[in-house]
């Protein structure tokens, strides 16, 4: 478990290379995250299908597939992964629609503030980690409960 904590994977999607470069540089300077950046949402999606990821950040307006559809598919594959949209589009109405439809973790407007972005990412990752831990504990409890049930049966068998 400590091993997974060390290795945080973040997927970034934007059709503009300059955004990807800028974000990668920032993250490599300020964090130890393993950054996977894609200009194609489809490629990003196939990566997410194959690999466990901790957080996904996507642009809104992209020629191949818009950010909302992309994040909706990410949710299908990995519902526990927090999803963030980054948009330069000035249409709040659509953004709110997206948040409700896809269940976004956060909505960031371009141009963004690096400090804010880092905090949001950290919070997202933390949330994912906590949810995973919670899931793990629930699994442990369930397993323990199963063991308990078996023991209970064994005891009954012994006495009856």
């Amino acid at each position: 478990m400590p091993g997974t904590e060390d290795k945080v994977t973040i997927v970034i999607v934007d059709d503009e290379d300059m955004v990807l470069t800028s974000l990668s540089s920032l993250l490599s300077l300020e964090t130890e995250y393993d950054v996977k950046s894609y200009t194609s949402p489809k490629e990003a999606l196939s990566y997410v299908r194959e690999n466990d990821v901790d957080i996904v950040l996507s642009d809104y307006l992209m020629p191949e597939m818009d950010g909302i559809s992309f994040l909706a598919q990410v949710r299908e594959v990995r519902p526990e992964v927090p999803r963030i949209i980054l948009t330069g589009y000035a249409d709040k109405e659509n953004a709110i629609k997206a948040i409700n439809e896809v269940g976004l973790f956060q909505y960031i407007e371009k141009p963004w503030d690096n400090d804010d972005l880092l905090i949001i990412l950290r919070n997202g990752i933390e949330r994912k980690r906590l949810v995973s831990q919670l899931q793990e504990k629930i699994g442990q409890i369930n397993a323990a409960y199963g063991d308990l049930q078996d023991m209970h049966k064994a005891i009954l068998k012994t006495f009856v």
Binding site: M18, S22, L23, L86, G88, E109, K110, P111, W112
Partner: peptide, 9 residues
């Protein structure tokens, strides 16, 4: 906003 975001960042 897209290039501006990159610049600012």
């Amino acid at each position: 906003n897209t290039p501006l975001g990159a610049l600012k960042s």
